[in-house]
Amino acid sequence: MTLALTDVSKEYGQKLALDGVNLTVSPREFLCVVGASGSGKSTLLSLVAGLMMPTTGEITVDGHPITGPGPDRGLVFQNGSLYPWRTVERNVAFGLELLALDTAERDRRVDWYLAETGLAGVRRSLPRRLSGGQQQRVAIARALVCEPDVLLLDEPFGALDVQTKEDMQLLIRQIWLDTGTTVLMVTHDVEEAVFLGTRVVVLASDPGRVAAEVRVPLAEDRDLAVKRTPAFLALRASVEDMVRCGVTR
């Protein structure tokens, strides 16, 4: 699966949110997009999800243009997108219920993703009984169970406290390693982007455009300790400078 954005621009009325973005996401990649607010990060993700159409330019998956949203591009929002009347397992099962699958096959798949995301113990709980971190795990499991070509994460840990956020970062890295899925994640947290990404793209603001691309030369097998290494800190600092330059120009 290769996701390609070619000269993608998006206007809201008179305001140009994204200006001529070119970007390619390769299979098995974990691509993080960082940028200050107003850099059009979320717009970029909505366009890839197919929830909006670009004003000009083209977005393709394996050469086929995107015409609308679909389960091949699973989306996780920052918060508040769980079905509050459905239990954890029925939230995760939503996408599979729409397919012609027998119950045993469906349950088998739901069970695997509940275990992978550490939700087996709360499978019959309603979302409001869960912590913020657990809720985001449900949203991730619900997207992944549909076996998307690419998992789209829109500031998925932005509303969590620092400790929970780090737990979730470890979890999403583990899931990425386990499942071999491709991830496109948008965040304003540079540390998070450098820790998780195989590559980091920096967007500049007003209008949003690609300012820089950085390959992350860290080992694939990372733990939280890597955040204190000189190599990590140097990379983080240089990306932070790029984000800041992107704001003030």
Partner: peptide
């Protein structure tokens, strides 16, 4: 009905 709930349903294939 919250917009994200509707959007996410479309991305799940509904």
């Amino acid at each position: 009905v919250p917009r994200p709930l509707i959007d996410v349903s479309y991305t799940l294939g509904a």
